[in-house]
Design a protein around this nucleic acid. Structure first.
Lengths: 110, 110
DNA sequence: TGGCTATTTGGCTATATTGCCAAATACCAT
DNA sequence: ATGGTATTTGGCAATATAGCCAAATAGCCA
């Protein structure tokens, strides 16, 4: 059968890939609380400002954040709050993994 | 300030990264409908069997799918259906992007 | 204007990911 | 055992990603 992996999947993967980095996840969480400028995020993340700027550009490119110039700074905000609901599901996966891991340990001790 | 990007973000990013590929998204969607063996998925995706096997191993490693040997085949199933709810949010992002793109076009025509 | 801060861009290296092929492994049926 | 199907593993080349530095850009304020 020909490939059933469609452009739709490519488009979705791009969005999800933009989220798939620890610093970018942090940024998303932070922007969910309130808008922030690059400077603030750089401080919090503890990486080079250029690195953080590039992360933000990835997120912006995916359409996940919006930016607005105000005074001397550029403020970023989360464009799609529904993303945060997903984190609960990710946590479910993590705890299910931890549970399974524990059971494997328990099993070996016997 | 020291980095506020924590192990928690790393762990989450790993899960999300596992989803961040067109073929793997397709697999997730497909397994949400019903369990499938590698063979079937390979046919549908149209890539080398080894490639599909590796994608499945990425998903399994992240704890997103489970596998069960039965007869000659290995059947994979989706372990975390809540993932699918997230796709709606991703679609929202895509349509918001499309809308914005259209408005930019409209603006330039004036 | 000149200096200062905030942000982005270009360039580079290191590392990770992807996907194919060939080979190994597992398992069923004859 | 032998052959056949299903799946995984190892190896390799191509490509993509991450993060730093240095330099460019933009805007504020004195």
């Amino acid at each position: 059968m020909k490939s059933m992996v469609k452009p739709q999947h490519e488009a979705r993967a791009k969005i999800i890939k933009a989220m798939a980095h620890p610093s970018r996840l942090f940024i998303i969480e932070e922007l969910n609380k309130k808008e922030r400028c690059v400077n603030e995020l750089t401080d919090m993340i503890g990486a080079d400002a250029s690195t953080v700027s590039k992360h933000l550009s990835v997120l912006k490119n995916a359409g996940l954040v919006a930016d607005e110039k105000r005074g001397n700074s550029i403020f970023y905000s989360l464009r799609v709050p529904c993303i945060m609901q997903f984190m609960g599901c990710v946590e479910d996966v993590l705890s299910a993994n931890a549970k399974q891991h524990n059971e494997i340990l328990k099993c070996c001790k016997k």
